[in-house]
Write a protein that binds this DNA or RNA. Sequence first.
DNA 1: GTTGTTAAATTAACATTGTCAAGAAAAATT
DNA 2: AATTTTTCTTGACAATGTTAATTTAACAAC
Lengths: 202, 202
Amino acid sequence: MARPHLTETEIQSFRSEASEAALSMIGEDGVSQLSLRRLAKRLGCSYAKPYTYFRDKEHLLDAVRGRAFGHLADYMTAALAAPPSGPFGAPYLQFAFDHPEAFRLMFELRQEYMSPETREAQARAWKACTQAFHDAVAAGVLEGDPELIAHVAWAALHGLASLALANQLYLGKSVEEVAEGLEAVMDGFRPLHARGGAKWLS
Amino acid sequence: MARPHLTETEIQSFRSEASEAALSMIGEDGVSQLSLRRLAKRLGCSYAKPYTYFRDKEHLLDAVRGRAFGHLADYMTAALAAPPSGPFGAPYLQFAFDHPEAFRLMFELRQEYMSPETREAQARAWKACTQAFHDAVAAGVLEGDPELIAHVAWAALHGLASLALANQLYLGKSVEEVAEGLEAVMDGFRPLHARGGAKWLS
DNA sequence: GTTGTTAAATTAACATTGTCAAGAAAAATT
DNA sequence: AATTTTTCTTGACAATGTTAATTTAACAAC
């Protein structure tokens, strides 16, 4: 009885290479231009080889999303590490505008499937985004349930980024203006003595 | 030299019928299942007929989006008309959860094209959503620039709806909890004497 | 090393799709 | 009625996701 020829690392290696290449292609031409044939050509393999490593295209895209969430986690971690109490929201918007196609893929409104691995990468990104809120509450800069504050702030930020990317901000309000408004709103989470203090967006 | 056989109303009639049927099919099976062949079968015409009325599939989807925005406008108008100063945000979330596929189509992060007609329908929907904010500011229930308040509130609401539809609300926070948080945050727009007053979400 | 067996990769093939060209049918003008 | 123009349908093509068939490569036993 012959055992599998491919080692686990070889499998992971191909999956990584494929999803990273796919992410890169998506960044260049958008997700609608990604086909398995084109990806295979880029990888230098036949168009059917990915089917050995991914159940179908949806599972491949899931892996790509996982990588993208990983990148977001790294990006947020790095951005928030630098200044000890820097702005919270700006890096998230920055990521969205710097990598619009990746952002679109990650937060597509229609997602057929999400693997535990991708869920995990997503949770890492979430943690990186929200750590600052925990710190701020601990330091007395914000007050309330940090997770709840984070969800509210993130929903607002994410809505802003989404509407801007979908080109659906209306009637003469720019991203900057709305961000200013969010800024003012988040002030409600600050204890009275800290109102109008350090910005969390810019 | 023969003049066009189709009257403008006939053209509009087919376009309406086609986009309404398409919207309905999308509501049933999702946008990924909509093909021109299936739509044509439903309409009882050949699969190429739509090309006489729409430049390509993207233009058809644009028309469908226009109809969907029209429905949203009607829905919000009706919902906000009933109680003179009812909750602002709840109907929007309701629409999103009642018509998830339509919502997904309308706010898809990747939109290739938007016609002036669709832009207009979108503006109507936006107006219906924001009228309540203008009223509230006029009545002294909220204070500030109504358009800015509306943008901020809408960004937050929209982010919440999007994350919920994409199944990306994290780690034990429900839509209701985050909505509660938004509620608290919007309190920041209320004049001091009105804080903790009428809810705008539920 | 040869040989048999199993896994992996490639190619062939199929169904579906968007799109367009060529022809058929219908309608309007003469 | 004849002609011309418009609309509609059918046929065709290329691209895509996917699976089946086939070839190639890796391992095990001898």
